[in-house]
Write a protein that binds this DNA or RNA. Structure first.
Lengths: 160, 160
DNA sequence: GTCCTATCGTTGGGATGCCCAATGAAATGG
DNA sequence: CCATTTCATTGGGCATCCCAACGATAGGAC
């Protein structure tokens, strides 16, 4: 086993980073036809999904810095895709909603993004694509891993 | 099946991007104890692996911009971890090599990075980790599948 | 009611990663 | 000899991410 992972490019983080970079490139190029950047599309999609939502909520869900969220929403609002309405229940918040135009753009972008994602995973069979997504989901949804790397690894065999 | 991938956060590119981000964070924090950033470590490791190598070669292998490579090698050289020697066979090139100090730092960083990578994949069993790496490798190593196998690319060995 | 603390949107600065372009020096091929 | 290319370097621009503040507002403690 000592030889297989000698290369820095074979380590998990590096490999995942390369695949992620290619995915960003594919999706970004695809939705560029609609005039949106990657993160703008993500914000637009999340806004459409989570109804009227505060900027801070959007930022937490998408792991976007509040500073950058301001600029993105400015851009999206100027393009007429989203609306910022003061929240009567909490006047600190902006209730962000999607305009009809935003919904239309999002529909087209969604198809383009789906196609780009399909191209990214095209080397795999549909079954393998599901396997990959399932494994990544489990890696992603294991947040805490409380105490560090010392012991938690394989001492509890039967769990799965 | 149509509803499962409604969320932007469930799309492959987004999921891979989040996992990649967490991996970068884990590895970066780990090797920060040795005073190296992620990319610095990658450059150092690639230099150690590929013997004396030109900067442009390093950049191509690691997908690093030549502009940034200059700064990284400046930093690594100033820290005494690598050496830039003019290549007698091609005086445009700098033959980058690792110093003994660089080798020592790389050994420690390699262990730290391996531990961080193990923590990233810790939600998966060893077998599942291998499956994930195999799937990602196939996605990564499938270059241009876009236009169906046009043979036009192989017609250009005329460069030399 | 008055404090204290926390959150919200916003603005600022700084570090980094990635893209496009240009330079002078040097190698390569005709 | 000449045209093309590569190399290291420098420059600018844009986007992502981190840290820090600010005024305004909300919520709880008292």
């Amino acid at each position: 086993m000592s030889s297989a992972l000698q290369h820095i490019q074979s380590l998990p983080t590096w490999l995942i980073g390369r695949v992620a970079s290619r995915g960003r490139s594919l999706v970004g190029d695809a939705i560029a036809a609609e005039g949106l950047k990657l993160m703008h599309h993500a914000v637009l999609a999340a806004t459409a999904e989570y109804g009227p939502v505060a900027q801070a909520d959007l930022g937490r869900r998408l792991a976007i810095d509040p500073k950058d969220m301001v600029g993105m929403l400015n851009h999206l609002q100027q393009a007429g895709l989203v609306l910022r309405t003061p929240d009567p229940a909490d006047r600190r918040k902006n209730a962000v909603t999607v305009t009809p135009k935003g919904t239309a753009v999002l529909a087209r972008c969604g198809r383009l993004a789906a196609s780009a994602n399909a191209e990214l995973l095209s080397p795999l069979s549909p079954d393998e694509q599901r396997q990959l997504m399932a494994l990544l989901t489990r890696v992603h949804e294991a947040p805490s891993h409380p105490r560090s790397s010392a012991r938690a690894d394989s001492t509890a065999p039967s769990t799965h």
